[in-house]
Nucleic acid binder design. Structure first.
Ligand SMILES: NC(=O)c1ccc[n+]([C@@H]2O[C@H](COP(=O)([O-])OP(=O)(O)OC[C@H]3O[C@@H](n4cnc5c(N)ncnc54)[C@H](O)[C@@H]3O)[C@@H](O)[C@H]2O)c1
Ligand SMILES: NC(=O)c1ccc[n+]([C@@H]2O[C@H](COP(=O)([O-])OP(=O)(O)OC[C@H]3O[C@@H](n4cnc5c(N)ncnc54)[C@H](O)[C@@H]3O)[C@@H](O)[C@H]2O)c1
Lengths: 222, 222
DNA sequence: TAAGTTTAGTGAATTATTTCGCAACCGGCT
DNA sequence: AGCCGGTTGCGAAATAATTCACTAAACTTA
């Protein structure tokens, strides 16, 4: 159908299907969004499922099918308006707002994360950096933050309304820290420690472990 | 699916089916391995698909089915010998050896990566850290390394036999760097830049982008 | 205007992945 | 030895995900 007008009803209806949209589809949307942003930065105004697919190494049909879960965002014969599709994806992913994030662990990796510009420009604002090392408490980190003691967790969560935490603590401390994060009311954890966490089912955990990627790669090598 | 033919000639026959084992299965093996290692560190000697599955939040059937692609590693009524299964998985994943790795980008993240102990203890040895910033060349980084100029890439690859690179460079430089890595003969790239790279089909790229994870999470939040 | 080209959206077909269910087996116990 | 609880490996069934293939629409060109 059309772009800017006329699909509000379709969207609402589809929004209710939220629970039934495959998680694997959701997982691709951020990648689409990232790619669209790059195209927009390049000054491009429209793109097609085919062009996107070539960029990403996936089929155009998959992109169209994925998007079709949420509404009709393109125009036959033309493709997708990039700005419009970005906005729609942001709305779908709930990234049309600022999300406060708590960072735990101010070591080597934690410092890199705290400095990482891209979080802020994607709407993820690190509002507190917590560590348990007394030597580090009070030291400045990131952009205008200071390392706080981990015991401040409750106050930081309450004060910011954060639901999301990033864990950059050693593996041996990770489960304990996760327990406290859950206790403090957080429901989404991005874990850099090479360990699988045990959390209640209302808490979502995602993992980043470069060794897993390496080992996946070496399977195909000799 | 994968198992054509009978299963009489177990291991050798299965090894040849390598190309046909689903990539998604391969992707889980490192996680199994990581978990088994933790159990081993705990002093445990045997485990079962059920226990592993509970740890990882997946079904025991999936674990058994995944492993069955490669051979028979367990014992009915008992389960799996942890040390034995670790060794088998290491062999399958080709991590029963040392893999030299080239790191490109000695910024905030690159420094954290260079310091990261886990790589070495998993058999991934960073043999060179390259950067293009003249100010950084020659500075020590990681354990006994010095930052080298990016132009040294060819020499580093040749000297180490590295096939794997980690990219921790800004997004705007990433495609250019990737081209050079491919040119230099590398065939596996772990990319931290938030961008999808275009590479020849013989090169495997995996991506780590925390923003993608955050955005995946926020879909489920309000 | 009309013909030709491009592309979205989508039901149907295909392919991939996960789960089920059970025979075979192991080890311990009586 | 024979039984029993526990567990694997795996074919078959059930689900899930992707791709195909086609219709309708929108633009382009003459
Ligand atoms: N450095 C990397 O490149 C890298 C890459 C991937 C994953 N990781 C993982 O990320 C985690 C952090 O790595 P790192 O290199 O920054 O380690 P690090 O030792 O430099 O930093 C860990 C920090 O966590 C703090 N900490 C420890 N226990 C804590 C607790 N209970 N509560 C709060 N803070 C606590 C320590 O004081 C320290 O500041 C590790 O699990 C590591 O495996 C690191
Ligand atoms: N810091 C983080 O936590 C984090 C997390 C995830 C992803 N990333 C991504 O990782 C990358 C690096 O992040 P960072 O925070 O370390 O940035 P940074 O700016 O601190 O470091 C980038 C380094 O790359 C070097 N570089 C630039 N162009 C180069 C080239 N052509 N060849 C060789 N070296 C070159 C720079 O000199 C610099 O040392 C970025 O793409 C970033 O988006 C960072």
């Amino acid at each position: 159908m059309s772009n800017e007008g006329g699909n509000a009803v379709a969207n609402d209806a589809r929004a209710q299907e939220k629970a039934s949209i495959p998680d694997i589809v959701i997982g691709r949307l951020p990648v689409y969004l990232r790619t669209l942003r790059l195209l927009a930065d390049d000054g491009r105004e429209v793109t097609s499922s085919q062009e996107l697919g070539e960029h990403l190494g996936i089929s155009s049909a998959q992109i169209r099918k994925d998007l079709s879960h949420f509404g009709e965002f393109g125009k036959q014969g033309t493709g997708y308006n990039i700005e419009f599709l970005c906005r729609q994806l942001q709305k779908i992913l709930n990234v049309d707002r600022i999300w406060p994030v708590i960072l735990v662990g101010a070591g080597s990796l934690g410092t890199a994360i705290a400095n990482y510009q891209e979080f802020d420009s994607s709407g993820f604002r690190i509002v507190a950096v917590l560590d348990e090392d007394p030597q580090k408490i009070g030291k400045p980190i990131g952009h205008g933050l200071r390392i706080e003691e981990f015991a401040n967790l409750g106050k930081s969560v309450a004060g910011s309304g954060a639901q999301i935490a990033v864990m950059a603590v050693p593996a041996h401390a990770a489960q304990r820290v996760a327990n406290e994060l859950v206790e403090a009311g957080l429901n989404s954890i991005l874990c850099y420690a090479p360990i699988t966490l045990s959390v209640p089912s209302h808490v979502r955990v995602e993992y980043i472990d470069p060794v897993v990627h390496f080992q996946h790669m070496t399977y195909y090598l000799n």
